[in-house]
Nucleic acid binder design. Structure first.
Length: 195
DNA sequence: TACGTGATCACG
DNA sequence: GTGATCACGTAA
C-alpha cells in the first residue's frame, strides 16, 4: 500500500531517507507503468548548507516548503532531472533525493526511454532513474497520494546491518555539512550508483 | 579527468 | 541583463 502523510510528515529526514530503502517507487505516465525498489537515497534538511532550501524559498525550490508527500523535481547540469520526496510539515523544507532503483516493472519501457544511451544499468543514478521512469519537471509538486507517481511499502524489512551510510555525493559547496553521513544504500546491491 | 548543457540565482 | 555555478553521466 501507498505511503501516507504519517510517513512523510515527520521531522527526522535522515531517518525517513533510511526507511525509504526497500520501498517501491512507481510512475504511470501515458498509461505506461514503471517501478523500482529504492536502493539509494540522500537526506537534505533546510537547516544545513547542502540543501537547496538553506537560503530560503526561491522559484525553483518552493514546493520543498509545502507539506510533505510531494515530488520536488528540478533540472541539474542543464540535462538531468532529479527526483526528491518532500518531507516534514509546511515551511520546514526537508527532502529525500532518490539516487538509485532496482528495476521491477516495465523494464522494456525503461530501456526504450534510455535508448539514446544504452547502458545495462538503467536506473543506477539520480539522473538516469528519472529518465527511465519518465519523471520530469512537469511532475514538480505532484502529490504522491495520486496515481501518477507514488511510493509503496512492499513489506520487505531491511535490517539495520544491511544499510550502509556515508557522506552525500556532489555537494562540496556545503563545507562541513558535506560530511554529514546522510547518504543511505542497501549494502551490496548491484544497482547503487557508481562511485 | 574533462566537458556538455541550460536553468537558476545573486549580483548590479 | 549577466556570469558563475550546479544534489550528473559518459567517454576516454
Amino acid at each position: 500500500m501507498k505511503l501516507t502523510e504519517s510517513f512523510y510528515i515527520r521531522k527526522n529526514v535522515p531517518l525517513i531517507a533510511r526507511q525509504m530503502l526497500g520501498k517501491v517507487l512507481t510512475t504511470k505516465i501515458n498509461q505506461q507503468v514503471t517501478s523500482g525498489i529504492i536502493v539509494e537515497t540522500e537526506a537534505y534538511s533546510y537547516k544545513e548548507k547542502g540543501s537547496h532550501a538553506f537560503k530560503g524559498m526561491t522559484k525553483r525550490n518552493e514546493v520543498m516548503f509545502e507539506l510533505g508527500g510531494r515530488a520536488y523535481v528540478y533540472l541539474c547540469y542543464g540535462m538531468h532531472e532529479m527526483f526528491n520526496v518532500v518531507t516534514n510539515e509546511a515551511g520546514k523544507a526537508d527532502a529525500v533525493l532518490i539516487r538509485a532503483l532496482e528495476p521491477v516493472l516495465g523494464i522494456e519501457i525503461m530501456q526504450e526511454r534510455m535508448k539514446a544511451n544504452a547502458s545495462a544499468r538503467i536506473t543506477s543514478g539520480p539522473g538516469k532513474l528519472t529518465k527511465a521512469l519518465g519523471i520530469d519537471r512537469k511532475l514538480n509538486g505532484e502529490d504522491l497520494k495520486k496515481n501518477i507517481i507514488w511510493i509503496e511499502d512492499p513489506g520487505i524489512k531491511i535490517k539495520p546491518a544491511a544499510i550502509a551510510c556515508s557522506a552525500r555525493i556532489g555537494i562540496d559547496y556545503a563545507g562541513e555539512d558535506a560530511l554529514l553521513p546522510w547518504r543511505f544504500s542497501i549494502k551490496g546491491n548491484k544497482w547503487i550508483s557508481k562511485k
